[in-house]
Simulated scan of single mutants.
Amino acid sequence: RGAGQTSNQQALRQGAVELVNKLLMGRTKKAKEELPDPDENWKSKDPKALAYEIATFMGGTWPERPVRKVQLSLEGVPTDDEELFALTKLNPTLLSEMTIKTRFLFLEVFLEDIQDVYSEVMETLEPGTNLVTYDSLRKFKHLTVSLSFDAVSDVCQAAFDAVSFDEFPEVAPDERPGLVVPLDLAQFTKHAAAATALVKMMVDTEGELPPAAEPRIIRVEKKFYYDDI
């Protein structure tokens, strides 16, 4: 057991060293001197605690999450994994390629992110309308499509398709200040809540994929080009 603990500590330390080395690439000498020393004797052994220790090293600050002004309710959302997969149209292939531990850590962060950004979108809603800002909705779509939540991403895309971007220069498409888009609020909230519920289901099981994920995972057989010759 002692040897196993030592091995885990060495792996954790090596991970921290690799992280810092990546940060050092391309930096000036002065910038490198301001970054944490890879050989620093970190006290934390838990990955989350270690991340916090590195981030706050020598006066650094840990990013704080914004206060959610609009809460996303999960009331009435299906609790069956098959129903949630069908509703969200989640493609679990990317998640299946992660280790359980990595998937758990990733989903824990994603669970908070999706609720934060949902609130950001709804905070921009113009009173008495269904108009929200392009920038906030684009941020939400990028977040959800990154994990292949296709249903809510499609709702976002429908809002973008409903307006013309002709007046906005393509040199800076990431930000379009002042542009608002018409959003189907009911469908947006419905699918955002379903995606959140499915993520929470996986977080509650510490990264385990529900049974409904298995038949939806896309598996590609690795073959060498000369196998068919």
Rank of each mutant, 00 (worst) to 15 (best):
Q187W: 01
T88A: 10
G60A: 08
L111M: 14
P215K: 11
A31M: 09
K32M: 11
K43I: 08
S136Q: 04
K190M: 05
V181R: 00
A162E: 08
V132C: 05
R68D: 12
V117N: 06
D46S: 11
F140A: 05
K32W: 05
E53T: 08
V109Q: 03
L90Y: 01
A158I: 07
K29F: 05
K69F: 11
A55F: 14
A195H: 01
I100C: 05
M98Q: 04
K69E: 10
N41Y: 06
D46A: 10
A213S: 10
R219K: 13
L111E: 10
G178D: 07
P215Y: 13
Q157Y: 14
L90K: 01
T144R: 00
G4V: 14
S119P: 02
Y225R: 04
Q187N: 07
A194W: 02
H142K: 02
W62Y: 09
P127D: 14
Y226A: 12
L137Q: 03
V132E: 04
F140K: 02
P215I: 15
F57M: 12
P215T: 14
F106N: 06
V155D: 02
T79F: 15
A194R: 00
L50K: 00
L111V: 11
Q71E: 03
E221W: 08
N41G: 04
V17H: 07
V155Y: 08
K32A: 03
S146G: 15
A195P: 05
T6S: 09
G59I: 14
A192I: 09
V180I: 15
S136A: 14
T6C: 09
N91S: 00
V77L: 13
A49M: 15
A55S: 13
G59P: 04
R176C: 05
D174R: 00
L209K: 06
L198Q: 05
E123H: 02
D150Q: 13
A159Y: 06
T6I: 15
W42A: 03
A151N: 01
E34C: 10
M201G: 01
P211C: 09
V145R: 00
M122A: 02
A159M: 14
T124H: 06
G26I: 12
L72G: 06
A158E: 09
A194P: 00
F57V: 13
E97G: 03
L107D: 10
L183A: 03
M58C: 12
T99G: 11
L72W: 14
F149C: 00
S119Y: 11
L12I: 15
T88D: 08
R219P: 04
Q10P: 07
L183D: 01
K43F: 06
I229Q: 07
G15W: 13
E34G: 05
R27H: 00
W62D: 10
L24N: 03
E221Y: 08
E112N: 05
K222L: 15
D39L: 12
D81C: 01
L19Y: 14
V109C: 08
V220Y: 12
A16Y: 10
E18A: 13
A192D: 02
S119C: 04
L209T: 12
Q187V: 03
T28R: 00
E108L: 06
N130Q: 08
E75R: 03
Q14D: 06
F149L: 09
K141V: 07
E18M: 15
K200W: 11
E175H: 07
Q10I: 15
K89G: 10
L24T: 00
L185P: 04
S119M: 09
I217F: 14
E53Q: 07
S148A: 15
E18Q: 12
V67L: 13
S136Y: 01
G15I: 15
